[in-house]
């Protein structure tokens, strides 16, 4: 891993009411990294992502992207700094068409009239091309996840955060999406942070893993190592 992290989380703590959901979480994601954040239900994975992108307010700690402090920025500003977030379920807006969902993702950019990004994203997802003008409600679960990722990519982010993209998808589709994320990293240099319940699948595609337990980073290391380490697997990952 390179020395200068692209995304650096330092001592992040967050609460829901009196309950401490994130407890002094620190993790570094290198440029072009492909990382998994794993852990049981309620370990704080989703809250971690929501706090990173300003949907949830941190109690203390810092979030740095290329050295810029994003901790106090509202969500609508965070995306403009290069941190994109595909929330759980994708957050596709079913009342809009496929194309409108995509365009929405790049609307804040000053070069939004430039079709290049749109065409590039379309090229990544052939199933979406023929459904362009259709309502997003007509898409299957896998296609919705693609659309959600596509919308995030329209912002040309430096880091893409994904919250359980495999949720509710068939294993084959999940595999396609994981492969796509890896390809994106390999070919475009996108940095990806993948929150997953599906630990085995996520570790097989990523190069680094963080395991959250009760709001703390319980262990971290190269994905292969975590996959091979029986103790970690039994204690935190449940397989």
């Amino acid at each position: 891993m390179s020395t200068e992290p692209l995304l650096s989380v330092q001592g992040l703590t967050a609460h829901y009411g009196p309950v401490r959901v994130l407890d002094d979480v620190s993790l570094d994601v290198p440029d072009r990294g492909l990382c998994a954040v794993l852990g049981a239900n309620g370990a704080g994975k989703t809250t971690l992502l929501r706090t990173l992108t300003g949907l949830h307010r941190a109690t203390s700690g810092r979030v740095l992207l290329e050295g810029e402090d994003l901790t106090r920025l509202p969500a609508e500003k965070v995306i403009t700094r290069g941190l994109a977030h595909v929330p759980e379920g994708g957050g596709v807006i079913v009342e809009l068409t496929v194309e409108e969902n995509l365009r929405l993702g790049g609307l804040w950019r000053s070069d939004r009239r430039d079709r290049t990004t749109f065409d590039e994203v379309m090229d990544l997802f052939p199933p979406l091309v023929e459904r362009r003008t259709k309502s997003a409600s007509t898409l299957s679960g896998g296609e919705r996840q693609m659309l959600a990722i596509g919308r995030a990519l329209m912002a040309r982010p430096k880091v893409l955060l994904l919250d359980e993209p495999s949720l509710g998808l068939a294993p084959l589709i999940t595999k396609q999406i994981f492969t796509l994320l890896r390809d994106l990293r390999d070919h475009t240099g996108l940095t990806v942070v993948l929150v997953e319940q599906n630990a085995a699948g996520a570790l097989s595609v990523t190069d680094h893993g963080f395991v959250l337990n009760q709001g703390r980073v319980a262990t971290e290391g190269p994905s292969e190592g975590l996959l091979a380490d029986d103790r970690t697997r039994h204690a935190y990952l449940g397989f």
Binding site: A75, E76, I79, G91
Partner: peptide
């Protein structure tokens, strides 16, 4: 929420 994540105020 999706709007905010897409940069909409």
């Amino acid at each position: 929420e999706s709007a905010r994540l897409s940069g909409v105020k």
